[in-house]
Amino acid sequence: MKIRFLLIALLICGSQPLFAQLKLDVEGGLVFGTNYNKVRIPNTGGTTVNLADDLSIDPKVFYRIRAGYLFGKRHNVSLLYAPLSVTYHGNFQKDINFNNVNFVAGQPLKVHYKFNSYRLTYRYDIVSRARWLVGLGLTAKIRDADVRFKSESKDTHFDNLGFVPLVNFYTAYKPSYHWSLILEGDALASKYGRAEDIFAGVAYQANNKIGIKLGYRVVEGGADVDDVYNFNWINYASAGLLLTL
């Protein structure tokens, strides 16, 4: 899926007229912790665990790539590839039923948590001025998730591939040509769950083609459906390279 996604992004960007404004946002940094990561699989009969409290997590390097296209001065279309995988390790203080497999209390184990995201976004810039840029749009997200519990004697996982519609927003304030304050993200909530992916930070524009950004990103949300209960809050220290072609 990763290769197909990147090929689609290149085809979209490559098929645009020469006068088109293409943008590339390459972001990376450190996953430095999770406030909580509550899992219960299956939702009925499984054991509720909080991976963030019950186990340890090592800092993890992450990256994400967004390819965008601005046309008509206010219309934005972008593709985002945002992989995420973290590993928890330790042992639980009680017996755990995960995916109908029992893990004994005190038994060392690892939990591999994957939450990859593929998104197509359209945003319209409601305000486009010298100092302010404010936009709203819609995001179609494909969620590729997997939770795997592995001990010395047992190994089981639960994967989930699904579609999630989100509301996209972007706000930037430019006190000067070089500097911007940015708040952007995708978010939506329903009775089945919620999802928020929000970045807050500062950007420095070196020239009309190259910029950098630095800030904090949070991914929060989850689902409470028949097969799975999972809600998490993940913190990122983030830096990025901004290219305009």
Results as ranks from 00 to 15, higher is better:
G14N: 02
G193K: 02
Y177G: 08
S128F: 06
V167W: 14
F32Q: 06
I142M: 10
K150M: 10
Q93S: 14
W132E: 07
G162C: 02
Y170D: 13
K209L: 07
T156K: 01
E152P: 00
S176G: 02
T121K: 14
H112Y: 12
Y236G: 03
L120P: 05
A239L: 11
V202Y: 00
T48M: 14
G137R: 07
V228F: 11
G211Y: 10
D53W: 00
F169D: 06
N91Y: 13
Y36M: 06
L22S: 02
A200F: 09
I57Y: 01
A52Q: 04
V26N: 05
R143I: 04
V86L: 14
F231W: 02
R119D: 07
F32D: 14
A9M: 11
G33I: 12
Y36S: 03
L133C: 09
L80C: 05
A140R: 03
D25W: 00
V111L: 08
H178P: 00
R194F: 07
Q205T: 05
H75I: 08
I210C: 08
T47G: 10
L7Y: 05
H75C: 10
L245P: 15
V202D: 00
A145H: 08
Y229C: 04
N208F: 08
S117H: 04
D25C: 00
N232E: 15
G90D: 06
L242E: 03
L11N: 10
I3H: 11
Y177A: 11
Y36N: 08
F169Q: 05
V26R: 01
T34E: 13
S78H: 04
Q205E: 14
R40H: 06
F199Q: 03
V134A: 14
N37W: 11
V147M: 08
K2D: 11
R148M: 12
F19R: 13
R4D: 12
S151D: 07
F103V: 02
L166K: 03
V202R: 00
V77N: 02
K174F: 09
I57P: 01
H89N: 14
P59L: 06
D146H: 09
E27V: 11
I210H: 12
F92P: 07
R66F: 01
G193W: 02
S15K: 00
